[in-house]
Amino acid sequence: MPKLNKFRIQIQTGSEGIEEPARFCFNSHVLPLEELSGGTKPGETLEGGYDVNSVAHSMTLVGPEKGTWSLQKIKVDFECENTPPYSVEYPAVELGETTELNIWKDPPLPTFDV
């Protein structure tokens, strides 16, 4: 399990947005995103992040408490300890009151050309 120093996330909202703050769940702890810019209304892009500084077991984007949040595109930039920064992109998905989206990915194994 790597130590995640911090991450930044870009969330492009599709046709259905939310009024409430965007939250993520790190190792079963629900937290609000920090250093926010943009919004979560239809067509808007929200950018935020968090200085986690903890070993990552799981991380999810939590669905709204009321209604539906349609996500057009999600991009997460990870900065883990002892590994180069890496990014992960997820396609369109819809979150509801009883769902959350996995956004954690272990650092990729290094490769070399042969």
């Binding site: 992109e89 997820y90 396609p91 998905v93 769902t99």
Partner: peptide
């Protein structure tokens, strides 16, 4: 407490 279902979608992978 609400027990939420975790959705897993395959990431958008670039050609290696």
């Amino acid at each position: 407490p609400v027990v939420r279902r975790v959705i897993r979608v395959p990431e958008v992978a670039d050609d290696i």
